[in-house]
């Protein structure tokens, strides 16, 4: 294995975006394929970040700089991957629900999923059920993720799930947010609940394997 791939993984873990940018370009110049750089450098790096975050060894600022480093690398790989029709692991549509402007947790889930090889379509905040439906029809994602921070807005997740059920669209819908629990997810008919961004990635992996 090219030793620079290990160095690249370390730049992701350490959140050094300028180094990640430079090393990725260097690896491409040396003839490595984007998939090799992704699978053997970037994804192992983000994997360590995820584990350390879950275990309380890394915190939000560190995860955010790691995600930024990942982004710096991916900006070189994405155009080549797109041109070669390389398939992402899956496509996830994610958004904060109507009435809710909070997006820190949702953004974190978004970057962790991207860092694990998924294509993420981030709808931002304040999304009504109809917009989730329209975006589903346009992008045909494998999974939809709903986020809410407030006890008032989390109830709207049920409205969205019911709309998809009414339309007989079998896409898995998963939920998260500070006041949300597994019990609540079961009550509203969600297909999954994740307590944090790392669990969200594990949940998505599990659903994609089904």
């Amino acid at each position: 294995m090219n030793p620079l791939l290990q160095t690249l993984a370390e730049t992701i873990i350490d959140g050094k975006h300028l180094d990640a940018d430079r090393i990725t370009m260097q690896l491409l110049e040396e003839g490595l394929t984007p998939m090799t750089i992704l699978d053997e450098g970037l994804l192992p790096g983000m994997g360590v970040v995820g584990r350390r975050f879950r275990d309380g060894e890394m915190f939000l600022p560190q995860v955010l700089v790691s995600a930024r480093a990942m982004k710096s690398a991916m900006k070189h790989l994405d155009p080549i991957l797109a041109a070669s029709n390389a398939e992402p692991k899956g496509t996830i549509l994610i958004g904060t629900v109507r009435g809710d402007v909070h997006d820190i947790g949702k953004n974190l889930v978004s970057v962790m999923l991207q860092g694990n090889g998924y294509k993420v379509i981030d709808m931002g905040i304040q999304n009504p059920a109809e917009k989730f439906l329209a975006m589903y029809e346009e992008h045909q994602p494998d999974i939809i993720g709903l986020s809410a921070l407030l006890t008032t807005t989390m109830m709207y997740m049920k409205t969205i799930i019911e709309l998809f059920k009414e339309k007989n669209i079998p896409v898995p819908i998963i939920i998260g947010g500070a006041p949300v629990t597994q019990k609540f997810a079961d009550e509203i008919g969600a297909n999954g609940y994740a307590r944090n961004a790392v669990d969200a990635v594990d949940l998505v992996h599990a659903i994609m394997k089904r």
């Binding site: 959140g15 600022p61 560190q62 955010l64 700089v65 930024r68 820190i104």
Partner: peptide, 10 residues
């Protein structure tokens, strides 16, 4: 919020 949190490192 995100820029601010990263600023603690940067």
């Amino acid at each position: 919020y995100q820029e601010g949190l990263m600023g603690m490192i940067d």
